[in-house]
Design a protein around this nucleic acid. Structure first.
Length: 344
DNA sequence: CATGGTCAAGTGGCA
DNA sequence: TGCCACTTGACCATG
């Protein structure tokens, strides 16, 4: 089965109008000044609401045939600033999260996470490493609370996130920090290829880290185009695939498309409607403004939607998390297409 | 109640 | 040097 999923936010539910039940989100947070350090109750309230809404998300996903979902990292706001069990409503929150886990298991959903770019196990700065370890452990604890046995099935996916001009030395530091993680966290942590040429391609991750400690590699199709490691997409895909298969876990990949291209096609369309060529555009102040905005978009930025689907190289079992700004709205058409094909 | 400026964390690349 | 991109917008003061 080729399975599509989305990340963290359900655009439909997040913006649900009040008369239809109001907003549903798992990423309520607070400004530091409004709680730190004495108002844990505020954080506890947010976490309980977030956990409650996570269950709503999972039920929505089930109703719409989506069984792959990335849980947001803000479920416990500021989670590296306290112990989870110090939250006043820890019991209620745990209970709710266990309910989420149970629901996901009963319905065959795969839940994953993707901690932010601030988790840098290879940093030369000790304080950065310490904070990273705490953050990763919190993600792992969240899965514990959901009642999951530690497994790469519930991947905690990060990047090496910094090479400091020396991939080998940084990889060694990364592994050293990794060894300090709990067994549960180690059994969940995986690495993803970077989107910069100077950083870690699938091949770099494989040779410098996977060979040493055997953790799976998430293949990101879009990132691969910026950092190939001299591998074709097919080669990188299958190199990463092996790292999952040897653990008996379904390979998980990420897919997204270029925001620049998306905006450019849109602008092109508008121009052609007005009979203006791309070259002429600068003589029209309004369009020139749009063009300028477009040119500021970084090459790596993700598009709102996807127009294509990734090459799955005829494998029959693959998970694909689509990273698109429109979230679940970007994959619903793909699921429709899959359904049609099944009927035919 | 809508809006826009602002907010925690690390790193790299670009104007 | 300061912005943007990466996992994710959401908070909150102001009008």
């Amino acid at each position: 089965m080729i399975r599509y999923g989305y990340a963290c936010v359900n655009a439909t539910l997040t913006n649900r109008p009040k008369k239809l039940g109001g907003r549903v989100t798992t990423s309520r947070t607070a400004r530091k000044a409004s709680w730190y350090p004495h108002n844990l109750q505020l954080i506890s309230d947010k976490a309980l609401d977030n956990a409650t809404d996570l269950l709503t998300y999972l039920k929505w996903n089930e109703e719409h045939g989506i069984t792959l979902f990335r849980v947001g990292s803000e479920l416990f706001p500021w989670h590296d600033h306290y112990e989870l069990h110090d939250l006043p409503d820890y019991d209620k929150i745990s209970q709710k999260l266990f309910e989420c886990g149970e629901y996901a298991r009963e319905h065959g959903h795969r839940l994953t996470t993707h901690p932010g770019p601030f988790h840098v196990l290879g940093s030369p700065r000790q304080d950065v490493v310490e904070k990273s370890i705490i953050g990763l452990e919190r993600h792992s604890q969240m899965f514990d609370l959901m009642g999951y046995t530690p497994s790469f099935e519930n991947k905690i996916n990060i990047h090496v996130a910094g090479a400091y001009g020396d991939r080998e030395a940084t990889a060694k530091r990364w592994i050293k920090s990794w060894q300090r993680l709990s067994d549960a966290c180690k059994s969940r942590l995986v690495l993803e290829n970077d989107d910069k040429a100077s950083m870690y391609s699938v091949r770099h991750l494989y040779e410098l880290i996977h060979r040493e400690i055997d953790i799976p590699i998430t293949f990101d199709y879009w990132h691969h185009t910026f950092c190939t490691g001299d591998l074709s997409e097919r080669e990188a895909f299958f190199m990463a695939r092996e790292t999952w298969e040897k653990h008996g876990i379904t390979q998980c990949t990420h897919y997204s498309e270029s925001r620049r291209n998306e905006k450019k096609s849109f602008l092109n369309e508008v121009c052609s409607k007005h009979g203006i060529s791309w070259e002429e555009i600068d003589t029209w102040p309004t369009f020139a403004k749009f063009k300028k905005e477009f040119s500021k978009i970084k090459e790596q930025a993700h598009a709102d939607y996807i127009l294509d689907t990734p090459n799955t190289y005829d494998v029959d079992n693959l998970d694909i998390v689509v990273e698109a700004k429109a979230k679940e709205l970007a994959i619903l058409p793909v699921l429709e297409k899959q359904k049609e094909l099944l009927i035919l």
